[in-house]
Write a protein that binds this DNA or RNA. Sequence first.
DNA 1: CTGAAAGCGCTAACAG
DNA 2: CTGTTAGCGCTTTCAG
Lengths: 336, 336
Amino acid sequence: MEKQTITIYDVAREANVSMATVSRVVNGNPNVKPTTRKKVLEVIDRLDYRPNAVARGLASKKTTTVGVIIPDVTNLYFSSLARGIDDIATMYKYNIILANSDQNDQKEVQVLNTLLAKQVDGIIYMGHKISDELRAEFSRSKTPVVLAGTVDPDEQMGSVNIDYEAATEQTIAQLISNGHERIAFVSGSISQEPINGIYRLKGYKTALQNAGIEYDESLVFETAYSFTVGEEVYSKLAEAGATAVFAGDDEIAVGIMNGALDHFVKIPEEFEVVTANNSKLSEMVRPKLSTITQPLYDIGAVAMRLLTKLMNKEDVDEKTIILPHNIANRGTTKEV
Amino acid sequence: MEKQTITIYDVAREANVSMATVSRVVNGNPNVKPTTRKKVLEVIDRLDYRPNAVARGLASKKTTTVGVIIPDVTNLYFSSLARGIDDIATMYKYNIILANSDQNDQKEVQVLNTLLAKQVDGIIYMGHKISDELRAEFSRSKTPVVLAGTVDPDEQMGSVNIDYEAATEQTIAQLISNGHERIAFVSGSISQEPINGIYRLKGYKTALQNAGIEYDESLVFETAYSFTVGEEVYSKLAEAGATAVFAGDDEIAVGIMNGALDHFVKIPEEFEVVTANNSKLSEMVRPKLSTITQPLYDIGAVAMRLLTKLMNKEDVDEKTIILPHNIANRGTTKEV
DNA sequence: CTGAAAGCGCTAACAG
DNA sequence: CTGTTAGCGCTTTCAG
């Protein structure tokens, strides 16, 4: 005999009420006499009834699940955001469908489509850039989208970030005040990723300009998001005569630092490093990385909170949210 | 005017066929005349029809989504497994609902229940221990479960792991051959976590015994899974007179190593460290951590592959899978 | 406060 | 090769 799944109908019959009433007590609808509620609850417990969320989703057109597009869960920056997202999602009774995109345009569009097919109530997107096709798909659908740790120049979707430009400017300014004139800028794609190519680079240039230092393109490097390539990059920085570096990603920063260390360069005495994300990685290496401190968990959490409001069609006064940042001087910069 | 969602019925009407036929072409059923298939496909494209996965799930009793219970996405060991899981899931057209459990028994049971309510086709569980209540819930449901990087002594569920005992024994043996007699063993809970308390500890003891070294309980430490506590632990190791350590987690190992480094201890000359998981963290620190090499990504991938077979009710010859391991001597152990 | 009834959008026999 | 017909299990008017 196959194990029979018990439905709302079974509960109704056993409790001598209609399915409508069972539905009401399951959904906490107050219009139920305490006596009947109790009776129904008791039957539910006895039969060990568990509402089928799929059926519920079909009938109510709400699935209480949100899609999360992430470049790679294995990157501490993004997984930290994801943790914040999941915690708040859980708090609001949502579940998360997590999909790695590898930042691949085609994969992203495909993932988005399956997410939409699964009728997610909302989407959180993380990534370095949003392709035109993806943006088009986003705006074509009615499903609310929030960007976490991701900026899209045309601010159509909700987003949560820090002020990358200001943060970078401060960082570079401090490096300059430490005596550096040749400060390298290393990040992912300058031409494609707004955070790097627009905001951070702008902050970098502004700081240089304020100090009367000429911008030198040969100090700007694009690289992949991995510590392995970071190590290779160090040699290039050295060749270019850089005495300090700002890295747009902690893994990259670690790679560069290790590259320097492997060349017996003393940090921070002979070479200073500042990174951008304050993931726990930055505190696990030695010396500890000086960094822009971003509230990673909070960025994720606030993004998810914003999404709940959007999904709930609540009024949102500001859907482009900027969280505060700071700078932590740890072991890879000289004492000021 | 609200944007009308278009259904299979609309497509059927426009194409002058029945919904059954549309369903067939959508699902790749071969019993459709090429001509009609083409016609339907064209209408689907024109109307931009997207099948509703929720309705499909209700009708077919399959959701093509699997639940993944993970202690913390932010832990590189688990996120590496998760990456393997997601990639294979995607390959087989499944999506993943990811839920952080924080290894909290109550939360795990709750998460499992919502996963089951959402009618996931299967579940992958990662964690250090399975509470009795959770195990009961697992066996009560018909939904297939696979453990990844997790062992449960009564092998009822599918699982993918390495041979923790053998790996640990080899590691300790090597440390002994390097001249150590007081080797510390640091991990999460010994009393509750089978991998640590049963397998690794057994391997540890066997290696000592083979070398005629007496087991000393004061060299065994339990600690939380975080590099921050690891740093505190180092002092205790030093007090206990340990000259080498085996750590059951990379973050813990990093913490201990940093604790030693912060005390100006030379590694590996004065103190050797071997860690257990080979997460990329082990290669990002300096010196690079010597480690048992586990195929993390593969453990996740194989676990997911196994789950697809289970969900598909295929015959599986062996559902307790052991993947090969090795030992990588990097910077925290002396050259042999 | 409660019940009846009509779907939600799709799959899956079954018949032809 | 194609259409008809029941549901899947639940929510949601609409009456009463």
